[in-house]
């Protein structure tokens, strides 16, 4: 039944390009040397505006409204924003978000550079190892979080069996250890992805540079710091920005591993938004937090577009294994 409805809704959208294609050439084929009209892009654009851009605009509107999930939203001006500004949990969540994002960047960047450069080499065991390395990438964020929640269970998990290392074994009981768990699980989950970025980039470095350095008598570590690292500059920027955007929007990990606890000690902004909106039915406040997150993420990704040159429309798949 669901399949049927899908077809009904997507059918008119799908039919459009053909109709367009039939009409277009007669109009101007000679002048345009068989170039497709803008209408080819229309179905996708309409769909995208409807289900991504429109909600984005609505999040801004809803942040000035009050809505409890039933009935229709009412305009309340800056009420949501002023309530959030006075909300100690909100302010704490901003700090926690920044802390976790920073921890992610600081831990994962050096780790994934070292692993990526190593994986780009030609060791014989590399192929075998990299199969295991990248398995965390295949798991959904949900599966990763559920897995670690089970492995770190205070009663039946690894910490309960290694009390010499973990104290009372309840890593979810204190703020420091709970934040540690979140940072560790994000590292476990995302380092393989960033390793892939660096592996691709390291492979693309011209061998000539290393040959020249060797003639000059530079050792491996000098080569790493004077050739490899500078050549990876763009990848470092791309990868760090992805880490920042990912860090700002971390959600599943917190929901499944700590539920924002103990207390509100790991309630980061994205999780607080979910709680406000879908547990407290304060959708206006949820929208306000969401808008703040969008603004933060947009600023970062505008930098991505600028720095990485995506806006110059070049092929971006170079160097992927």
């Amino acid at each position: 039944m669901n399949r049927m409805t899908t077809q009904i809704t997507s059918a008119p959208v799908a039919a459009e390009p053909r109709k367009v294609a039939r009409r277009r050439p007669e109009a101007s084929s000679a002048a345009r040397v068989g170039r497709p009209g803008f209408l080819w892009a229309l179905p996708a654009t309409v769909f995208f505006v409807l289900f991504a851009i429109a909600p984005l605009i609505m999040v801004a509107v809803l942040s000035f409204m009050s809505w409890n999930g039933l009935g229709s939203p009412e305009f309340v001006g800056l009420d949501n924003w002023s309530r959030l500004a006075d909300d100690p949990v909100m302010l704490k969540s901003i700090w926690l978000t920044l802390l976790l994002t920073a921890l992610g960047v600081v831990i994962q960047t050096p780790l994934s550079i070292v692993l990526g450069v190593w994986a780009a080499g030609h060791q014989r065991n590399r192929a075998v190892l990299s199969v295991v390395y990248f398995i965390p990438l295949l798991l959904s964020a949900t599966a990763v979080s559920v897995l670690w929640r089970a492995l770190l269970d205070p009663n039946f998990g690894i910490p309960a069996r290694a009390t010499w290392l973990f104290g009372d074994g309840n890593l979810f009981g204190g703020q420091a250890t709970a934040i540690g768990v979140l940072a560790f699980v994000s590292t476990w989950q995302f380092t393989p992805f960033h390793t892939l970025i660096y592996q691709g980039a390291a492979r693309a470095i011209p061998q000539v540079l290393y040959q020249a350095a060797e003639i000059d008598g530079a050792g491996r570590y000098r080569q790493f710091f004077h050739i490899t690292l500078p050549q990876l500059r763009n990848s470092v920027i791309t990868s760090m920005i992805l880490m920042i955007v990912g860090g700002l929007t971390t959600f599943e990990t917190v929901l499944i591993l700590t539920q924002g606890g103990p207390g509100t000690d790991t309630t980061i902004s994205a999780y607080y938004m979910y709680q406000k909106a879908f547990k407290g039915f304060d959708f206006g406040a949820g929208a306000a937090i969401a808008l703040a997150l969008v603004i933060a993420a947009t600023i970062v990704s505008l930098i991505v577009v600028r720095v990485s040159g995506y806006d110059k429309m070049r092929s971006d798949m170079e160097g992927v294994s």
């Binding site: 809803l62 955007v245 929007t249 909106a277 929208a287 997150l293 505008l302």
Partner: peptide, 9 residues
């Protein structure tokens, strides 16, 4: 750049 988290409401 639009995170899904931002538009769920």
């Amino acid at each position: 750049a639009i995170p899904a988290q931002a538009v769920i409401v």
